[in-house]
Computed example of a mutant assay.
Amino acid sequence: MPSAVANGVDLYYEAHGHGPVILGIHGSPSSAALWEPAAVRLGTLGTCVVYDRRGYGRSSAPEPFETTDLDDQVADAAALLDRLGADTAVVVGRSTGGLIALELAHTRPERVDGLVLLEPALFTVDGDTRAWAAELRAKVLAATGDDPAQAAEAVVRVALGDETWERLEPDVRELLRAGGRAVLAEIRGRGLDLSAAPLELTGDDLAAIDVPTLLVSASESPAPLRRVVPRLAGGLPRASAAVVSGGHLIDPAHPVVLEFVRRITLG
């Protein structure tokens, strides 16, 4: 299994294809395993690298793993690029991964050639979305009890709906539930979407993220998740937005994504 010690954590990763780097960042909970079909298709446009974030799937976590901050997640992504010898990348992030990708571009703009943000979890864009996220945070913590897996399941049920959760293959449900400890560490940390102190970006912050950006929402996602996209599209200077069918698990290799990435990596 390929892995790289990056930012003090052993991160599992996979690379598909050749050429300019395309970095995929998964949401919470999730794993690079769920990105493999998309990574293969993105790998026709460059070297698509997907990895398990700290505490998820096949990657390690520092012990004790009680908290993790957005800064940790951004530093992991940058350190992985360093270990792979990649100065820059097109960064594709879904949900919490989109939040991490956005902050990577905000704090390290020289590392980002372009952004694809699939319903990024920046829940401080307006009061209604912020209130929804606070309610979800409370619900997840209440559901956890002594079993961190319940935290992961609660997040997915809200984002995807109970019916979608029940339709998932048993092994996929277990993979998602296995990320419960990392979900709780993110909730207890700073900067991430369900933290008590989530990331806030001002209008000036957004205006400074001057990289080509594609924002994608899904027609059947919960309204708070969909609302983030037009809010960001109005603040990012080089953003375009698209709406695709389906729910929150937007395909990272959807045709609109492939076309956007192709324009950057292949000119």
Rank of each mutant, 00 (worst) to 15 (best):
R137L: 11
L45T: 14
E169L: 12
A196W: 12
L45P: 03
A33M: 04
T44A: 15
S240N: 00
T129D: 09
L201N: 02
E220L: 13
I264W: 10
D204R: 14
T67S: 10
L11G: 01
P62Q: 13
G85L: 13
R41N: 05
H18E: 15
R190L: 08
I100M: 08
V74C: 09
E110D: 15
I25M: 09
D126V: 13
R130N: 13
H248I: 00
M1R: 10
L81W: 03
P37E: 07
P64Q: 11
A79D: 03
A151Q: 02
A152L: 00
G93V: 10
D193Y: 15
R41K: 15
L99C: 00
L236S: 04
A4M: 10
S195Q: 11
R227C: 03
G98R: 03
L117G: 03
C48T: 15
R111D: 13
A208M: 03
V90K: 01
A218E: 02
P64S: 09
G247I: 01
E220I: 05
G189N: 05
H106W: 15
R157K: 10
V50G: 00
A159M: 08
G191D: 13
L104M: 10
L194A: 12
P2F: 07
I209W: 00
L99R: 04
A142D: 12
E220D: 15
T202S: 15
F260G: 01
A38V: 06
R157T: 05
A101R: 01
P230G: 06
L160D: 09
A142M: 02
R108G: 10
A197K: 14
E166H: 11
T88P: 02
R190E: 14
R157N: 00
P255Q: 13
R83S: 15
V21T: 15
G267Y: 13
D76L: 07
D113R: 15
T124N: 10
R111G: 11
L225Y: 07
G97D: 08
Q73G: 04
P222L: 05
A105R: 04
E135C: 01
S245W: 13
V172Y: 01
G55Q: 05
E103L: 14
L266R: 15
P64H: 08
G93P: 01
A143Q: 10
V158D: 11
P170S: 02
P62H: 08
G127L: 12
V116M: 10
V74G: 01
I187A: 11
S221V: 05
H254Y: 14
G203P: 00
V5L: 14
G179N: 06
E135V: 06
L118W: 02
A143L: 08
R263P: 05
G43D: 02
A197Y: 07
A133D: 07
A159F: 05
L201I: 03
T47K: 09
R94P: 02
L175A: 05
A4I: 02
T129L: 05
D71A: 12
D171A: 14
D126T: 12
E14A: 05
P170W: 03
A149P: 00
P255I: 11
